[in-house]
């Protein structure tokens, strides 16, 4: 293949130098898609809330105690994710494992509490097909719960990954995803529980 080439050389580093860490760019591209999925559903929920008169009445039956604890759990998870990233930048990888572990624990707690909440509601007869409120309630919180579970799995995956390869971007992206899920919850919480 070198037949027609002039002899000239290039540093390997120069060829493989990227201006942007591509893990971070790829993750933001992915996250922008996620924002549209969940943002679109939340927007649809808000529109239906405005036009559906029975929303307020139904929302009094949701469990404010469990959801408040869950809000606290999610926010704590965000805090530990930030701390994990801080220690990853500092290079203290033992602490990173600890705080990522705490975040994953928060995720599992959230999903477990959500499960209890659902079973209580279904026992009372509030199934998704009951009315507009409940179908959005299950649709949105269900999808959000799936995202929390996915976030937890991502964090456990990163915990395993960084044992072999100390990659700060991995910790950063896992944390970013967690914050995203957290922010979505901050829209869902008032929409279904506090109205």
């Amino acid at each position: 293949m070198a037949s027609m080439q002039r002899v000239e050389e290039i540093e390997k580093e120069e060829y493989e130098r990227f201006d942007v860490p591509f893990q971070r760019l790829g993750f933001w591209v992915f996250l922008s898609g996620e924002i549209i999925i969940l943002g679109g559903l939340v927007a649809a929920g808000i529109l239906f809330r405005l036009s559906y008169p029975g929303w307020f009445e139904s929302s009094t039956y949701t469990n404010v105690v469990i959801s408040s604890i869950n809000t606290f759990v999610l926010l704590t998870g965000s805090l530990t994710a930030v701390l994990a990233h801080k220690y990853a930048v500092d290079g203290n990888w033992g602490k990173v494992q600890l705080f990522l572990g705490l975040t994953a624990l928060a995720g599992l707690t959230f999903v477990g509490l959500k499960f209890i909440e659902y079973s209580k509601e279904i026992a009372l007869g509030f199934v998704p097909s009951k009315n507009v409120f409940w179908m959005f309630y299950y649709g949105l919180t269900g999808l959000h719960g799936a995202h929390v579970l996915a976030g937890t799995l991502i964090i456990i995956g990163v915990m395993l990954y960084i044992r072999k390869k100390k990659l700060v971007e991995a910790v950063e992206n896992a944390g970013l995803y967690w914050h995203f899920v957290d922010i979505v919850w901050l829209y869902i919480f008032p929409l279904f529980y506090l109205t």
Partner: peptide, 25 residues
């Protein structure tokens, strides 16, 4: 593709709920 397919994914979830859970989206 990234920006157009995502709302449809939300719609597909709603459609599946209509089929499986009997909701009325």
């Amino acid at each position: 593709f990234l920006f157009s397919v995502t709302p449809l994914i939300a719609g597909a979830i709603m459609l599946l709920m209509d089929i499986l859970l009997g909701t009325h989206f």
